[in-house]
Design a protein around this nucleic acid. Structure first.
Length: 115
DNA sequence: AAGGTGACTAACA
DNA sequence: ATGTTAGCCACCT
Protein backbone atom coordinates (compact mmCIF):
# COMPACT_ATOMS: atom_id res chain seq x y z
CA UNK A 1 0.00 0.00 0.00
CA UNK A 2 1.71 3.13 -1.17
CA UNK A 3 1.34 6.52 0.40
CA UNK A 4 -0.31 7.83 -2.73
CA UNK A 5 -3.07 5.28 -2.47
CA UNK A 6 -3.52 6.15 1.15
CA UNK A 7 -4.07 9.80 0.28
CA UNK A 8 -6.63 8.90 -2.34
CA UNK A 9 -8.57 6.80 0.12
CA UNK A 10 -8.47 9.47 2.77
CA UNK A 11 -9.89 12.05 0.41
CA UNK A 12 -12.49 9.69 -0.97
CA UNK A 13 -13.76 9.20 2.55
CA UNK A 14 -14.34 12.94 2.80
CA UNK A 15 -17.00 12.84 0.12
CA UNK A 16 -20.32 13.29 1.89
CA UNK A 17 -23.22 11.02 1.19
CA UNK A 18 -25.33 12.12 -1.70
CA UNK A 19 -22.42 13.87 -3.42
CA UNK A 20 -19.76 12.87 -5.90
CA UNK A 21 -16.24 13.93 -6.84
CA UNK A 22 -14.27 13.65 -10.05
CA UNK A 23 -10.93 11.98 -10.56
CA UNK A 24 -9.33 15.24 -11.56
CA UNK A 25 -10.61 16.88 -8.40
CA UNK A 26 -9.10 14.28 -6.16
CA UNK A 27 -5.87 14.35 -8.13
CA UNK A 28 -5.71 18.10 -7.59
CA UNK A 29 -6.15 17.63 -3.87
CA UNK A 30 -3.19 15.29 -3.95
CA UNK A 31 -1.04 18.11 -5.37
CA UNK A 32 -0.76 16.13 -8.60
CA UNK A 33 -3.49 17.60 -10.82
CA UNK A 34 -2.55 15.41 -13.78
CA UNK A 35 -2.60 12.13 -11.93
CA UNK A 36 -6.31 11.61 -12.44
CA UNK A 37 -5.63 8.23 -13.92
CA UNK A 38 -3.78 7.16 -10.85
CA UNK A 39 -6.81 7.97 -8.75
CA UNK A 40 -8.78 5.47 -10.74
CA UNK A 41 -5.99 2.95 -10.47
CA UNK A 42 -5.94 3.37 -6.73
CA UNK A 43 -9.66 2.80 -6.47
CA UNK A 44 -9.35 -0.22 -8.72
CA UNK A 45 -7.12 -2.10 -6.28
CA UNK A 46 -9.39 -1.11 -3.45
CA UNK A 47 -10.65 -4.10 -1.45
CA UNK A 48 -14.37 -4.67 -1.24
CA UNK A 49 -14.49 -4.52 2.53
CA UNK A 50 -12.94 -1.08 2.52
CA UNK A 51 -14.89 1.84 3.94
CA UNK A 52 -13.94 4.01 0.97
CA UNK A 53 -16.96 5.12 -1.07
CA UNK A 54 -15.34 4.41 -4.42
CA UNK A 55 -18.71 4.68 -6.12
CA UNK A 56 -18.83 8.41 -5.35
CA UNK A 57 -15.87 9.02 -7.62
CA UNK A 58 -16.74 9.52 -11.27
CA UNK A 59 -15.28 11.10 -14.37
CA UNK A 60 -15.11 14.85 -14.86
CA UNK A 61 -18.16 14.81 -17.11
CA UNK A 62 -20.36 13.13 -14.58
CA UNK A 63 -20.23 9.79 -16.35
CA UNK A 64 -19.44 6.53 -14.66
CA UNK A 65 -16.46 5.32 -16.63
CA UNK A 66 -15.56 2.03 -15.05
CA UNK A 67 -13.64 -0.71 -16.74
CA UNK A 68 -13.55 -3.24 -13.97
CA UNK A 69 -15.83 -6.11 -14.85
CA UNK A 70 -15.91 -7.22 -11.26
CA UNK A 71 -17.80 -4.03 -10.47
CA UNK A 72 -20.01 -3.05 -13.39
CA UNK A 73 -21.16 0.49 -13.94
CA UNK A 74 -24.73 -0.44 -13.18
CA UNK A 75 -23.71 -1.57 -9.72
CA UNK A 76 -22.06 1.76 -9.03
CA UNK A 77 -25.10 3.60 -10.33
CA UNK A 78 -27.25 1.51 -8.05
CA UNK A 79 -25.14 2.41 -5.03
CA UNK A 80 -25.33 6.09 -5.87
CA UNK A 81 -29.07 6.07 -6.29
CA UNK A 82 -29.34 4.33 -2.94
CA UNK A 83 -27.77 7.49 -1.49
CA UNK A 84 -30.23 9.79 -3.17
CA UNK A 85 -28.16 10.67 -6.22
CA UNK A 86 -30.08 10.82 -9.46
CA UNK A 87 -28.34 8.72 -12.06
CA UNK A 88 -29.55 8.99 -15.62
CA UNK A 89 -28.73 6.35 -18.15
CA UNK A 90 -27.84 7.91 -21.47
CA UNK A 91 -26.86 5.74 -24.39
CA UNK A 92 -25.81 2.92 -22.12
CA UNK A 93 -23.78 5.26 -19.92
CA UNK A 94 -24.75 6.27 -16.43
CA UNK A 95 -24.65 10.03 -16.08
CA UNK A 96 -24.84 12.22 -13.00
CA UNK A 97 -25.75 15.89 -12.81
CA UNK A 98 -22.49 17.37 -11.54
CA UNK A 99 -24.01 20.80 -11.01
CA UNK A 100 -26.20 19.22 -8.40
CA UNK A 101 -24.08 16.58 -6.78
CA UNK A 102 -20.46 17.59 -7.34
CA UNK A 103 -18.69 17.83 -4.02
CA UNK A 104 -16.88 21.09 -3.38
CA UNK A 105 -13.76 20.35 -1.33
CA UNK A 106 -14.43 23.21 1.02
CA UNK A 107 -13.47 21.01 3.95
CA UNK A 108 -9.87 20.64 2.87
CA UNK A 109 -8.85 21.28 6.42
CA UNK A 110 -10.08 17.80 7.19
CA UNK A 111 -7.21 16.45 5.14
CA UNK A 112 -4.67 17.96 7.47
CA UNK A 113 -6.33 16.05 10.25
CA UNK A 114 -4.51 12.75 10.15
CA UNK A 115 -6.42 10.07 11.86
C1' DA B 1 15.93 -0.46 -15.22
C1' DA B 2 12.93 0.52 -19.17
C1' DG B 3 8.80 0.46 -21.39
C1' DG B 4 3.89 -0.21 -21.42
C1' DT B 5 -0.64 0.71 -19.27
C1' DG B 6 -4.71 3.08 -17.45
C1' DA B 7 -11.82 3.80 -13.02
C1' DC B 8 -8.58 10.62 -16.76
C1' DT B 9 -8.46 15.36 -19.18
C1' DA B 10 -7.73 18.78 -22.21
C1' DA B 11 -6.48 20.20 -26.63
C1' DC B 12 -6.90 19.58 -31.78
C1' DA B 13 -8.85 18.24 -36.26
C1' DA C 1 -20.40 19.31 -31.37
C1' DT C 2 -18.17 14.67 -31.88
C1' DG C 3 -13.79 11.83 -32.73
C1' DT C 4 -8.82 11.39 -32.12
C1' DT C 5 -4.36 12.37 -30.22
C1' DA C 6 -1.37 13.45 -26.86
C1' DG C 7 0.14 14.60 -22.10
C1' DC C 8 0.26 12.81 -17.29
C1' DC C 9 2.01 10.30 -13.04
C1' DA C 10 2.43 6.33 -10.51
C1' DC C 11 2.00 1.23 -10.95
C1' DC C 12 3.11 -3.26 -13.18
C1' DT C 13 5.72 -6.48 -16.08
Amino acid sequence: MTDFYNKVYRIARQIPKGHVATYGQIAALLSTPRAARMVGTALRSLPDDSDVPWHRVISGKGIITIENMEHPTEEQANLLMAEGVIVTKVDGEYTINLKEYLWSPESLEALSDKR
